[in-house]
Design a protein around this nucleic acid. Structure first.
Lengths: 346, 346
DNA sequence: TTGTAAGCGTTATCAT
DNA sequence: ATGATAACGCTTACAA
């Protein structure tokens, strides 16, 4: 196992001092004769020298690493977010440390500790909602924290980038109303998440504007993980007065809900019109192709990275950023006018 | 912006030397009086001290970071792999630096440079196939390199963890043969990838055993990205003698192929029986539910991490590891006996 | 049991 | 234009 050469090895091999080598390594940090420069460069190449990041970081922290703390990368939504974040970060020459919380606040604590010890310059995260003091501390020591897709109300000073959840749910629900539906159910995320609450708000507002009373029976929150979504749909479909339309506003639960619907032989859109929050390619493949809320994840990533890399100077005076990326309702075939194929049950 | 305390701050605040603090930080590295220990611990907590990883790494490299270099995390297969790798690594207290090549060898070079400069202890990668000398160098300086899902023939000394591609394709094809199919097409990965070649090998072997001649017309390779897969299916379906069965052995192309099939109104399994290499949840949701090759990604991750973290001492004498994780054929409804619902075209 | 001091590989500040 | 040399924050002999 070969030992890597250090800057000193390069210096002596080139017959110059380490300072000179450092200067050719960091152009602009000082003068160096063209000839000397070339020779040093040659030696660097010959020896296969690569400066050690750890040592560089020790001197003066040049923002080079960014933490990406997601709930879960198996979830396609987060996977695509991660992909774009990595790309976006790379375009600016910075690396991404990927970690997951699995929605567990204890794990989150561990991850945050690691991130703190690494002195990352920024963190893009989907917080669990706990660890309030830890987040505060991170910010206090100058870490650029950006919450993406969710946020923590108790920490209003944190930058936030999310989808326009309220608007999305509003659009989905309005569309359903326009098709004549009046019993519209929604399966959303946990109540304690802003994502869940915002979506329900948009849903309720659309209902109000259509003159439909809010019916708690039709509003279901389910965890991001587990079979909560599937169970919710079962409960909804056994209601005395079944819904004729459904908004699945919990991305993580979409497949579970659909599976249960399929197994229960609920005809879509005959018995139930459906709009889902998920624009994965497969939503177009199934029968019927699903009407979806398209989520411009790339924008989410771009804004997040920009904020996470923003110099802390900017933050001093300015208000925290609150960016809501607009979504798009893509109409396909899982929504039909109410009663189009089947008369109401009575 | 608060400045983080250093070990020296802790030492003076606790009225001891830095050595003592270091010892309580690294239990087992030396003796420390129980009382002193407690006091130091208290000060650490009060000051909110966190040791700086960069400084620690500088002294003696304790394997703490692992590079995960994937083609692309938007691809669900790789996303799930990443998720498991992160979990598995975390269980051993090590962090993951996520990078993507986008199948571009130039980008790969950049990533490898970064990884080298960071002196990561190990790298788990899906190599593009280029950068041979760079990989060699990485190994030479003691980096544990593990190729996952693919490998590079020219670098037989690198550990390798992959799915049993040949066996998978063999199982899929045999199943189809058993159902009476004789014109079985396959859409696989690029010829230059081991993945692609292995799958075609398994396919051919199954054909041979069933006494069916290999027909080059029915063997299509398509890139991992782009519309190659969709185009291939179009070509196949316009053949004078159409195939009655298809194995989609290019995971990245599965949705594209199915979309084209759907748009062309090809009845599955009526006109065409289909087996795909992808066990995403949605494969069960579509009509008909797809017969798939299930890929135990978690195993892939576990083995990869284990190898990437293995001490280099182990490697000295031993042969490089070549692990092939077995897959499973899950029979659903996209495969039917030949001619079951529709007579052959004449 | 505790303290002192020498690195680890860079960068940056002075002199030269 | 170049070269000593002092940090950076931590670990670790070696001394006390």
């Amino acid at each position: 196992m070969l030992k890597q050469p250090t800057i000193r090895d390069v210096a002596s091999a080139a017959g110059v001092s380490v300072a000179v080598v450092s200067r050719v390594l960091n152009p602009g940090s000082g003068p160096v004769a063209p000839l000397t420069r070339e020779q040093v460069l040659k030696v660097i190449d010959d020896l296969g020298y690569h400066p050690r990041t750890a040592a560089r970081e020790l001197k003066h922290q040049p923002p080079t690493t960014l933490g990406l703390l997601l709930a879960d990368v198996a979830n396609p939504f987060f996977a695509r977010l991660a992909d774009h974040v990595v790309n976006e970060a790379d375009a600016r020459g910075i690396q991404v440390l990927l970690m997951t919380t699995q929605e567990d606040s204890q794990l989150e604590t561990q991850r945050l500790t690691t991130l703190l010890e690494r002195r990352v310059s920024g963190i893009i995260a989907t917080p669990t909602g706990e660890n309030l003091d830890f987040w505060s501390k991170l910010i206090k020591v100058g870490t650029q924290v950006v919450f993406v897709d969710r946020s923590i109300p108790e920490l209003p000073e944190v930058d936030e980038v999310r989808l326009d959840n309220k608007g999305s749910a509003y659009a989905a629900t309005s569309h359903l109303c326009a098709m004549g539906h009046r019993r519209i159910a929604i399966i959303s995320g946990p109540d304690k998440t802003t994502t869940g609450r915002d979506r329900i708000q948009g849903y309720v507002q659309a209902l109000l504007e259509a003159g439909i009373a809010r019916d708690e029976e039709l509003i279901r929150s389910s965890e991001f993980r587990g079979t909560g979504g599937a169970d919710a749909i079962s409960a909804l479909m056994s209601l005395p007065e079944r819904p004729t339309a459904l908004v699945v506003a919990n991305t993580a639960q979409v497949t579970g809900v659909l599976r249960r619907l399929t197994h229960s032989n609920v005809a879509i859109p005959g018995e139930l019109s459906v709009v889902v929050f998920d624009d994965s390619p497969w939503t177009e493949l199934i029968t019927p192709p699903l009407t979806i809320i398209r989520q411009p994840i790339e924008m989410l990533a771009r804004h997040s990275v920009t904020l996470a890399l923003a110099t802390s100077l900017r933050r001093e005076s300015a208000q925290p950023a609150r960016i809501a990326v607009r979504t798009e309702l893509v109409k396909r075939s899982s929504v039909a006018p109410v009663g189009a194929m089947l008369e109401p049950l009575s």
